[in-house]
Design a protein around this nucleic acid. Sequence first.
DNA 1: ATGCCTAGAAAGTCTAGA
Length: 255
Amino acid sequence: MSFTFASWNVNSIRQRERHVLDWLDRKKPDLLCLQELKCETALFPRSFADAGYHPVVVGQKAYNGVAMLSRDPVELRCDKLPGFAHDAARYVEIGVAGMVIGNLYLPNGNSGGATGFATKRAFLDALAGRARSLLDEEEDFLFTGDFNVCPTDEDYAPGALSPDDALLRPESRAGWRRLLWLGLTDALRAVAPSGRHYTYYDYQNAAFQRNAGLRIDHALLSPRLAERLVSVTPDRDERAKEQPSDHVPLVVTLS
DNA sequence: ATGCCTAGAAAGTCTAGA
């Protein structure tokens, strides 16, 4: 039996409610992982439950916020990232279909000066710790979401970011590589070792029309799940819609 | 020239996003 999940930073779930409902109706994934809800838990739209999805929502006012929408009932495991002290709705972890799935919204790291960037590094550190714990427990697990890291120079369009952007900084990339070195597989690069496969296009300067994108939304698979990987596709079409999110869904199918 | 969008909070235009 196959399992299809997607990660989608929706940049306000209330602004994007219709887009997400339509997308679910067309794609029918087993699980959709949402980031940047920009709303409190109590204000999360009811329509997704009405459409047959079990919602798990970790919201907050104005910023951040993550949610999971699952076809099957799920077990909530964590509503924050263990080892990450900051009080922000940036992580939710569930158990479903024999897997542990962590849905994350990593701090961007460009705002707040040195403190803001330190928060990004702290999240990456805690995520590596979480990976080690799940490996020790011999869980089949995956992390997916908006990592706010371009892993290599091939993962952003030339000129789309300044060279010292927090998405590119050596510390950000080192945090990403550490997850790979723990044995996790970058799902997109496992099926497409090279080439442009962006998941984000800035609203400004016609970035989408110029294909001036970034690859910052990812799925990292534990070893046994990597063996089940079938396909990974950024759903570019979604960015061409009226009033879209600046991110597109990243769709992953496991056998 | 971190600015040319977009969203939220809130009633000014900030902050944050990336």
